[in-house]
């Protein structure tokens, strides 16, 4: 069984991004980048399936520029067998990513395609579902537990009211939630070894799919700040302040 994992390169989650002075986009020049946190869970789960003897090969794929090699190296250092970079100079959106991933799936024929449930830069949360649609595959999204048995994968999904369990016939698309697992730390020697592994590069314009952005970013602004708060010294003071607010009864 083969597993394909999609790994996005995003701004580190600890960084507060700045907006370019002209408001055209965020300024990520020189900012610390890394693997999208959910995608680390996806890689981890694929590796665990391999360690359980259920999967035979784990292939990581990332779409972007040559800079994305670093997240693929991270995936290789975690234990992925191979890595594919799809280079695109057009800034890709979920539908475009899904179309390009579809061509990789058609070539690689994985049984499970693992993605993160959302990328923490755009918070779209769309690519996995779009890929499943384009492939005509079933989907298991927001997954916090997963078990492969024969040609079926049983998953627990985190939904608004609690959790839901579904059984899905393979091949299938799965999107990982953070509680799926705790991703392993990368050991330095593994990172050194990963530096030597080859990364296959494909070029988006040669892949025969339309990845023209459908959404145009017109402007980026900062949200209005909340007005500064008041420090209260005791529970009594807090309550007396709150009791002056209309509509709140305490």
């Amino acid at each position: 069984m083969k597993i394909l994992v999609a790994v996005k390169r995003v701004v580190d989650y600890n960084i507060k991004v700045r907006i370019k002075p002209d408001g055209s986009d965020v300024d990520i020049h020189g900012v610390k980048m890394g693997v999208n946190p959910f995608d680390e869970n996806a890689i981890e789960e694929a590796l665990r399936l391999k360690e359980q003897g259920k999967a035979t090969e784990v292939v990581a794929v990332s779409l972007g520029t040559t800079a994305n090699q670093d997240v693929l190296r991270h995936a290789l250092a975690m234990g992925a067998d191979r890595a594919i970079l799809i280079e695109s100079h057009v800034k890709l959106q979920p539908l475009g990513v899904a179309k390009l991933l579809k061509t990789v799936v058609e070539r690689e024929q994985p049984d499970i395609i693992l993605l993160g449930k959302q990328a923490i830069d755009d918070d779209s949360g769309q690519t996995g579902q779009m890929l499943a649609a384009l492939l005509g595959y079933p989907q298991g999204t927001f997954v916090s537990a997963l078990n492969v048995e024969g040609n079926e994968v049983t998953v627990t999904r985190e939904v608004d009211g609690g959790t839901e369990d579904i059984a899905i016939t393979l091949p299938a698309v799965i999107t990982a939630d953070l509680r799926l697992n705790a991703p392993r730390f990368v050991k330095l020697p593994n990172l050194m070894m990963a530096r030597k592994k080859p990364i296959e590069t494909l070029h988006a314009p040669e892949m025969g799919v339309d990845v023209k952005p459908r959404l145009k970013l017109l402007q980026v602004t900062e949200p209005a700040a909340r007005k500064p708060g008041i420090k209260v010294d005791s529970v009594e003071e807090l309550l007396s302040k709150l009791r002056t607010i209309e509509g709140i009864q305490l």
């Binding site: 991004v17 459908r214 959404l215």
Partner: peptide, 15 residues
């Protein structure tokens, strides 16, 4: 919003 609510994006859809 983007980046966990740190920024607001104005987006135009061509579809």
């Amino acid at each position: 919003s983007g980046y966990a609510g740190n920024i607001l994006n104005t987006i135009h859809s061509t579809d």
